[in-house]
Structures are given as C-alpha cells and as structure tokens.
C-alpha cells in the first residue's frame, strides 16, 4: 500500500535528488551584490582619502610639513600654510562644545526625568528638528539676525568690562564686528545640541531602573540620581556623544562661512574674525585656478580636515559602541 503511493507520487514529481534547489543560480548573484555593496563602502572611503591626499600632494612637496605650522595664507606671494585654519577649526568647535554641553545635559535631564510623558516625544522631536535645518539656513540666520545682535548688545559690554583684565582680556580684544570666532562657535553649538542630546537621551534611557530606584530608595533627589547614578553609568557613551558633536562642528561649512568673518590672521580674541579649514575651502575655491598652488593647498587643507574628523569620529564611535554592544 505504502509502496504504490510512493511510486504514484514519484511519477508526478521530479525525483528529489535531480531537482535543482531554488535559487541555485539567482542566489549567488544576489548574495554577491550584497557583499559587493559592503565592499563598495570600504572602497569609497579609501578613494576619498586617496584622492584628497593625491590632490594635496603638490602642496606637500612644495611646502613640506612646514605647511602644518605656517601661519601665512598669502595668495599674492603664493605662500600658504594651514596653521590659522587648523587653529580656527579647533577653536570654533571647542567653543561650540563648551556652549552645547550644559544645554545638552539640561535638555536630556528634562526629557528623561522632568517632562510629563505626553510632552517628551513632541519636545524631543522639536529639538531634533534643529538638526534637520540645513547648514546654509543657519548661515543666513546667523549673518542677518545673530551677528547684528551680538555686535550691538553682547560685544560692547564684554569688551568694556573684560578686555582691561590682564591675560583673560586678550580673549575679548578688538572691535565689536559681530562676526568672528565666538559667533561661529555659538551657531555651531545650536547645530550640534540635537546630536549630543539625542545620544544622551538614548544612553540615559538605557540606565537600569533598579539602579535609579535604589538611589531614590535611600532618599536621593531627582538631580542627585541624575548626577550620581545615571551620568556615571552612561559616562563612556556620553563622552562618545560629545566627541560626535565635536566631529560635526569641525567640518561644518556653510553656517561658519557666513559668520566667522573669513580673515586668515591668527588672533587669540574670541571677537576677532577668523577662518576654519572648511570655510577657507568654500571661500577661496572659486579663485583657485586649475593646477595652481592655491588649489592644491586647498586640497591639502581638505586632507588635513579629513584626518582630524576621522580621528574624532572614530574615537566617538569606539566609545559609544563599547557601551551599547
């Protein structure tokens, strides 16, 4: 009985061992495409590094490593150095982080501990939308709205009060132009707050409730739990979040170009106009002829910016992932 059924079926279907498994041909193609796209991303980064390096090579040959610590940028004498821009890039980004940090800590505290449940999402989204506003819009807002305000209301009193003080006074020297390092740092701070806050909130939400409840149980206040339990618990990832903010601020172009004043002079003052690597590239590129020393110096600047950003972003990622994985 069993045998007849088997033979009847075997007649209707192809023998199992001769049937090709489905996807024997199509699957290697599909899986190959998946691997290829993964490898493509690796090649893409390699290509970007190689092209920027190659583009800046003539400048490197011409100026040598002196390019890194030369503070001149003179198109007339064709003498170029990166020091002013490297300084401006780091200085403005550090100002941004200094201003963004307390705000991000506060907003994250508000979103995780203070706000009523119903408000957390809408307010969180509103803060995140600050990150969605295009860079050039920050530039226009900064240039047309913030710069005049700072020139009229912020700089004159600060210059009057602080510039006579020895040492610190150097930070507040100069005419109240409105644009400059401080303004660039402030605009950058607004732009990186959403990134830092989002990662702070994500980290704080991963703090085990039991830890916090134990602290509440011994009578700690909400702030004490935040400061002594939640923040220490997420410390590594939060430092990573700050590094990400720093990395974002380093390479921001359009917003900075509008408000930094674009002066290629070295100055310690917060109010002095300056330049970042990105703003210099954006500003000077239209005047750089193909094959000129200026163009290759700009590409060399780009390579330097890439190296700085890469280090900061890689560090950030290592810190954040070590916590979440």
């Amino acid at each position: 009985m069993d045998a007849t059924i088997t033979t009847a079926k075997a007649g209707a279907l192809p023998p199992i061992d001769k049937a090709k498994p489905t996807g024997a041909v199509s699957d290697p193609i599909f899986v190959g495409a998946l691997w290829a796209s993964g490898i493509f991303v690796l090649i893409l980064l390699g290509l970007i590094i190689a092209q920027l390096f190659e583009g800046g090579l003539p400048a490197l040959r011409h100026f040598g490593l002196d390019f890194l610590w030369t503070a001149t940028w003179n198109p007339v004498t064709e003498n170029y150095g990166a020091l002013v821009m490297i300084y401006g890039t780091l200085f403005s980004a550090v100002i941004a982080v200094i201003f963004a940090l307390p705000l991000s800590f506060g907003i994250a505290f508000f979103l995780t501990e203070i706000a009523p449940q119903a408000l957390r999402r809408p307010i969180g989204v509103a803060v995140q939308l600050l990150a969605a506003v295009p860079s050039i819009i920050y530039g226009m807002w900064g240039f047309f709205v913030i710069v005049p305000l700072i020139a009229a209301y912020v700089q004159p009193p600060l210059i009057d009060w602080l510039s006579p003080i020895p040492v610190i006074g150097a930070l507040f020297m100069g005419p109240p132009l409105g644009s400059g390092m401080l303004t660039a740092g402030l605009i950058l701070a607004v732009m990186i707050i959403p990134f830092i806050t989002a990662m702070f909130v994500e980290t704080l939400e991963s703090v085990p409730a039991m830890l916090k409840e134990s602290a509440y149980g011994v009578g700690a206040t909400t702030y004490e739990v935040y400061k002594n339990v939640s923040i220490p618990y997420g410390k590594t990832a939060m430092v990573g979040a700050i590094m990400l903010g720093l990395g974002r601020a380093l390479g921001e172009t359009m917003a900075v170009t509008f408000v930094i004043g674009n002066a290629t002079r070295l100055s310690a003052s917060l109010f002095a106009p300056g330049a970042t690597i990105a703003s210099t590239i954006a500003n000077e590129f239209p005047e750089a002829a193909l094959g000129s020393l200026k163009l290759t110096s700009l590409l060399q600047l780009g390579f330097i910016l890439f190296v700085i950003s890469f280090i900061v972003l890689a560090l950030s990622r290592a810190l954040v992932r070590s916590r979440l994985d």
Partner: peptide, 11 residues
C-alpha cells in the same frame, strides 16, 4: 559607514 555619515560634506 558611521564615519561617512558624519564626515564633513564639503570633503
């Protein structure tokens, strides 16, 4: 990919 996500767009 994480690096490319945050790398300066001007580059």
């Amino acid at each position: 990919n994480d690096i490319l996500l945050s790398a300066p767009s001007i580059l």
